[in-house]
């Protein structure tokens, strides 16, 4: 059923959207708390556990490669075993970085939305005038830009905001005159 499908898609989109800031915040928290986000791939080789680790920070990336005592293992065998885990490790790293890229785009778009709204009508004025719906506009703008944030649409949204700005300025003047 199309309506049900639409609803489930909406639900999926909404939950994904809600999760993104949480993931981004978790990454930011790790960066702030631990100086970097750590991606680890543990594996066992001849009964011992080793960890392949990448620490991603702002401006630096550190790879830690475990190196068992050379005399204990045959380098060729170690190499073959290791290759699989390196591939897995970099798949994890790429997935993480792709997810982060999406999140940063989200935050950037949200910020643009907030800035746009702040330019059109300062939020504190909205509170003063009890325009509660207007408070939601930055969020709506951010969501809109995130999901449909193409240049042409952005221009359209910007044009609409400019129009709204004029309307609200006029309304503000009317309210001020009435108060007098």
């Amino acid at each position: 059923m199309p309506a049900e499908r639409d609803l489930s898609q909406l639900w999926k989109n909404t939950t994904e959207w809600l999760q993104k800031p949480v993931r981004a915040l978790r990454f930011a928290r790790n960066l702030l708390k631990e100086g970097g986000h750590s991606i680890e791939t543990p594996f066992t080789y001849q009964g011992n556990t080793f960890v392949l680790r990448t620490v991603i920070g702002f401006g630096d990336v550190i790879n830690f490669i475990p190196n068992p005592a050379q005399e204990q293992y045959d380098p060729a065998d170690w190499h073959n075993h290791y290759k699989e885990h390196i591939n897995l490790h970099f798949e994890k790293t790429t997935t993480f970085l792709n997810a982060f890229e999406k999140q940063t785009t989200f935050w950037e778009a949200s910020l643009k939305g907030i800035v746009g709204a702040a330019n059109i009508y300062p939020l504190y004025q909205a509170i003063l005038m009890e325009e509660w719906l207007l408070l939601l506009s930055p969020v709506a703008s951010a969501v809109y830009l995130y999901f449909f944030g193409k240049a042409t649409v952005q221009k359209l949204v910007y044009g609409l905001w400019q129009f709204a700005k004029q309307l609200f300025t006029i309304r503000k003047k009317i309210v001020a005159r009435r108060k007098k």
Partner: peptide
């Protein structure tokens, strides 16, 4: 500060002897 940190990207690869899973 973050912006200035990003003016250079440093990639380091370190070989750690017998590195086991130990948390910071």
């Amino acid at each position: 500060n973050l912006a200035s940190d990003l003016l250079r990207l440093e990639i380091n690869t370190i070989v750690k002897q017998n590195m086991s899973a130990e948390k910071i």
